[in-house]
Amino acid sequence: MIKASGAWKKKPAQKKIGIVLAHAFLAVLAFLWLIPIFWVILTSFRGTKGSYSSTFLPSFYTLDNYVKLFTDFSVFNFPQMLLNTLIVAAATCMLSTFFVVSVAYTLSRLRFSSRKKLMNAAMIINLFPGFMSMIANYYIFKMLGWTNGPLLRLSMIAIYSGGAGLGYHIAKGFFDTIPIALDEAAMLDGCTKWNVLRKIVMPLSKPIIVFTLLNSFAGPFKDFMLAKILCGPNKDYYTVAVGMYQMLEREYIDQWFCSFASAAVIISIPVASLFLATQKYYSIGFSGSVKG
C-alpha cells in the first residue's frame, strides 16, 4: 500500500486528474447499467399498487408483493409455476447435457470420415431461424395432441433438449484443450476408446459438464416464447416466464405489476448466481472455438 501511494504521489497532477475522471466515468457507466436492476428491486418492495408510479422512487416499502405471490392464487399460482419450471428444467438439463457432451466429445476427440460434413451441416442448420422449427414443432405436437394435460411437459422437454446437440461449441472448445497425447498413450496401452472417454477424459471434464448442466437448467427459466406458444391457455402448466409475461397483460398489470417485480427478483437470484459461478467458461469456450 505504502509503495502504491508513493507511486501515486510521483505522478504529475494532470495525470492524477485524468485517472480520477476515468474512475468517475466508469462509475457513471456502471450506474447507468445497474439502474434497471435497482429499479426492479425497489419496485418489488413498492407499497403503492399499479404499473405506473407518479414518483421514480417508491413512497413507502412493504413485503406484500412477495407475500401475494405465495398466497394469492386467484389468477396466478406462482408456486405451481415454479414447480412446473423445475420439473421441466431438471429433465431438460439431464438430456441436453448428455446430448451436448456426446456431440462435443465426438467432434473434438474422435476422427471419422463424416466429421467435417456433420460440422458443416450443423452450421447450416444453425443458420435457420430457430424460431421456424419452434413454430413447426408446435403444430406437430398439436397434431399429436401433446399440447394438453401432462403431455405438455413432455413436449416442452422434448423441444428444449431435442436440438441441444447443435449447441456443442463451448463444450467442444473445452475438450479441445485436453491434450490428445493422453488418449494416444492410453490407447497404446490397449485402452478402448470408450474407456478413454470414461476413465481419462471424463474425470478431467467435470467443470464443463457442470457448466452445461447449469446452463441448460437455467434455459427453461429464461425462455418464454416456446412455453407461451405451447401452453396457450393451459394455466396449470405455465412456466415462470410465461406466468410473468401474463402478469403484464392489460387486465392484470394494475394488480400484479409489483408482484411481477418480486417474481423477477426471486428467479433472478438463482439464475444470476448460476451464471456468475460459471461465467469464466464463456471466454474459454470462445477461445476454443476460435482455434477451430
Binding site: W33, F221, K222, A241, I267, A272, L276
Partner: peptide, 10 residues
Amino acid sequence: LTVAVPHFVT
C-alpha cells in the same frame, strides 16, 4: 451482473 439476470425480465 446485468447479463446474469434473465433477459426477458430486464
